[in-house]
Design a protein around this nucleic acid. Structure first.
Lengths: 346, 346
DNA sequence: CGTTGTCATGTGAGCGTTAACAATGCAGTG
DNA sequence: CACTGCATTGTTAACGCTCACATGACAACG
């Protein structure tokens, strides 16, 4: 052991290790790269020298000659949100176990130029592939246009994106939620949608709508929010104006929280008077008042699957899948119940 | 304009640009590095050739010769949580505007070996500095031991860490919350603390305790949670056993959410019977039932300040500050009110 | 005993860039 | 007109590594 760490005041290089071990630099390289053509005794001498000098290979030099940076890039818009943050986390873990580094670049705005700019930034860093966490239609649209010498994979960007990627089956989740509410006896289900420029919002809305249509239930007007609890609160106030509302399907949990708050304030019983369903199953959802019935999606899994897809492309594996669809799951909690008896004369 | 993008089937290099522009590769390099000793006309010819070939400099080659990777590393434990996610976001943005790339490495576990491992991983990637988002005592302790050839800065790791860093003044925030509750006339304030191995949890608890001590108020036993809403719920159930509780200061908003839920379930009025204060001011806090009085800390700002600190160290600026303390702010909402009249015979 | 093959190791070139220095041209000066 | 000085450009050598190939040793083979 030991931590000389410098040779003549500079970081040790391969030649220093070679000299100390009494071999050529190439033999050191072989040891480092697990080349089988090295005698066991020599290998140990080299490893000893490496430890003695606390030598670390220079990645820039290696990248220069191998043309492989071992780095993947992640482009994202707002990693402050629970979903994107969890996907990023999943990506990093999967990347590490696949032997890649992860470099991040966030988007200034959602237009195509910004997406191209972020991809270029990563390209400047010689990433071998790019993952994009940007579920907005505009970003995905831009993605299809992006010039990139390396593979690009979208994570959590709806299901119809033109680029390869991993996504949750939003429509199926929305259908499950809506069907469940109908089964409880509600005449119809109102919907608090996400921003219309998000693919997920579109898909959830479409799923909700298709179930109502299939069941012959009336399709109420949609109230739109921006995913925030604040916007859910406002949507809730709006829904309160209509006394016929007995069931609400919100496009995410945060908006559902806002809706719950508006209903609570107004003295409506949940689920006695009105049932509420969310989407995402954030960790707090079971501690809302009341605990929220919601559609669980596993963001971490999504990130991991996306990364696997990208690695397969980077390493040029044959028979590469282009799209992975992860199934969400309806989680039933206390915010949903059978429809209240219809008001007399309704 | 144009996107030849390849020369003889490979990425164009500086020599290709030079040939097309009719200059030497060194002149191309000068243009790229804004060297003033280039005639305007030549510069334009070179820029044209660069665009024509869609040439991008090879960062590995540049890093190899300049010994500067333009990359900073971020070590974090769980970027799924709102605080860490926001700090990471702030860091990335500040890094971009300072001209650095950001590479991430998450911790397997919280022991010293894992911290060293993550730092080494980044070091292998030739980062010029490392930011650590790991507010646990164990991680910070390990940090002080970490061997690293590059500067290390801690972000949001309490105020007494031994490494340089940016942190929120947790004690001040906790004092403000506790004082406010006492001013409202509560005889004392109960505390739902975070995990004792987090510096923030320790500091908040210390701030709370000091105010009670100074005011001569009784110091109730602390209930500890793990930051999650679930643990807050359990803490709430525990607090309900004691009828004298009229004010609760929770070490974060998620636990406060759990407490609110437990109290709501038990039919206690908030704030009529019991006042509750949180810490963090997550975006949802104003939509809890009731809206949560809490201590706001600006995580993004924290990340930016930490990054500035690191950049100053990396670029060897004189008079570098070692620590930055960001002041939190008490935000008053509907979950707090004057103490209820003391029960007769109390 | 020469030939062939295989293992273990070394040698030299080259990856694409920047740094240091050299060279050129041209204006201004005495 | 030679001489200095400055602006502009070119030439060459690193940077630290891997790849392709060369070399040497030694066993197996006919």
């Amino acid at each position: 052991m030991g931590a000389a760490n410098t040779v003549n005041g500079r970081q040790p290089v391969m030649a220093d290790v070679a000299r100390l071990a009494g071999v050529s630099h190439q033999t050191v390289s072989r040891v480092l790269n697990d080349n089988p053509h090295v005698k066991e005794e020599t290998r140990e001498r080299v490893l000893l020298a490496i430890r003695e000098l606390d030598y670390r290979p220079n990645s820039a030099a290696r990248t220069l000659v191998t043309r492989r940076s071992q780095t993947l890039g992640v482009v994202s818009f707002d990693t402050t949100l629970y979903g994107p943050a969890s996907m990023l986390y999943g990506i990093e873990q999967a990347a590490r176990s696949a032997g890649y580094f992860v470099s991040i670049a966030s988007l200034r705005s959602l237009d195509g130029r910004s997406v191209q700019e972020a991809v270029d930034r990563l390209r400047d860093q010689a990433v071998e592939g790019v993952l994009v966490i940007a579920p907005q239609t505009s970003a995905v649209g831009a993605l299809a246009q992006v010039r990139s010498a390396v593979p690009v994979v979208a994570v959590g960007s709806g299901s119809q994106a033109r680029v390869p990627g991993a996504a949750v089956d939003n429509e199926a989740g929305a259908r499950a939620a809506t069907q469940y509410l109908l089964h409880l006896g509600h005449r119809t289900v109102h919907h608090v949608a996400g921003p219309s420029n998000w693919l997920d919002a579109q898909a959830r809305r479409a799923g909700w709508r298709s179930v109502l249509a299939d069941a012959g239930a009336p399709v109420p007007e949609v109230v739109s929010g921006d995913w925030s609890a604040r916007s859910g609160y406002e949507a809730g106030l709006h829904l309160l104006e209509n006394p016929e509302v007995t069931a609400v399907f919100c496009a995410n949990d945060h908006m559902a929280l806002g809706v719950l708050r508006a209903l609570n304030e107004a003295g409506r019983g949940i689920p006695g008077d009105i049932s509420v369903v969310g989407f995402d199953d954030i960790p707090e959802a079971s501690y809302f008042t009341p605990p929220l019935t919601t559609v669980r999606q596993d963001f971490g899994e999504l990130g991991r699957r996306g990364l696997e897809l990208l690695v397969a492309q980077v390493e040029g594996e044959a028979g590469t899948k282009e799209r992975v669809l992860v199934a969400p799951e309806l989680v039933i909690r206390g915010s949903t119940a059978a429809a209240p008896p219809a008001p007399a004369g309704g």
